[in-house]
């Protein structure tokens, strides 16, 4: 389990990184925290000619709150975000979600943007990003572009990122005042990728559900925003009946779920609905 040979570059600016990537195209790969990529290299399942380590680019490790968004740079470690002062107040959903990602010893290295770029459908951060309505800032040879999380994920381990593009920051809008939130998931062991999970945010206004947002993960090729469930919830009276109905709509919305040694397709579909219902209940209680 030793990596194949590759060249290594440690650019000191985004422009330089992009230029390197552009030059090598598919033969180059970005290295961020390495928590996914290095395991693949050790198994020789990835064989880039060039690794572009973006950890030496100054400024990419910044976290700030601006324009009502939590702005997370490309090299922000998952753990650094977890310890970002005030995160429990400014973005409790993200904090709760981060705690489900692997273990502290992995989060100390793994980056938020690396997880987003890696786009594992069972990962928490992509689902959180879709649920929170995050925007991604992407820089490539043709300059900067911005894309919503919802549009970013295409399929298993595939995003709209071109080989020469870098995800430079993720912007997570802060939750609206009075929003309730919840992340629920089933894993085989604590810290494992989810067999199925759900992220829900909502407000309660005049004893009715308002602005619901429901995302399931671990079930399809990308985080699944469940608009049918959201529509059913909007304006509904909070309570078990509503959660159950909307949960069933989540299960219905799941298409072609993964079937593997840990869970069957039918199970994933059903459990996604259950997780969504449980998340709705908890989110409502927090709202």
């Amino acid at each position: 389990m030793k990596p194949p040979a590759f060249e290594y570059a440690a650019p000191t600016s985004v422009a330089e990184a992009v230029a390197l990537l552009d030059e090598r195209g598919f033969d180059a790969k970005v290295l961020a925290g390495g928590q996914s990529l290095m395991a693949l290299l050790n198994m020789r399942l990835a064989r880039p000619e060039l690794l572009v380590d973006i950890a030496r680019v100054p400024g990419l490790d910044s976290i700030e709150i601006s324009d009502g968004c939590l702005v997370v740079g490309a090299m922000v470690r998952q753990r650094s975000l977890e310890f970002f002062p005030g995160l429990a107040d400014s973005h409790p959903l993200l904090l709760a979600g981060l705690r489900h990602v692997a273990h502290p010893q992995n989060r100390n290295q793994g980056t938020v943007c690396g997880s987003l770029a890696h786009a594992d459908p069972a990962a928490e951060l992509p689902a959180l990003a879709v649920a929170a309505g995050a925007e991604f800032v992407i820089e490539g040879p043709d300059g900067k572009r911005s894309e919503s999380a919802e549009d970013f994920f295409i399929t298993y381990l595939t995003t709209t990122l071109e080989p020469a593009e870098l995800l430079v920051e993720a912007r997570f809008p802060l939750l609206r005042e009075g929003s309730g939130w919840s992340v629920q998931e089933v894993t085989r062991r604590h810290g494992d990728f989810a067999l199925a999970g759900a992220v829900v945010t909502m407000r309660i206004a005049d004893a009715r559900v308002a602005d619901p947002r429901v995302v399931a993960f671990g079930v399809g090729a990308v985080p699944l925003r469940c608009t049918a469930a959201e529509q059913a919830l909007a304006g509904a009276e909070p309570g078990p009946a509503a959660w159950k109905e909307a949960g069933a709509l989540v299960a219905e919305a799941v298409e072609d779920p993964l079937d593997d040694v840990h869970a069957s397709a039918a199970q994933r579909r059903s459990v996604a609905g259950v997780m969504a219902s449980r998340a709705m209940e908890e989110a409502a209680a927090r709202a």
Partner: peptide
């Protein structure tokens, strides 16, 4: 008795 097996047992007809 993995979740996969127990779930199947509990929801036999769903699979």
């Amino acid at each position: 008795a993995s979740p996969r097996r127990l779930w199947k047992l509990l929801h036999e007809n769903a699979d």
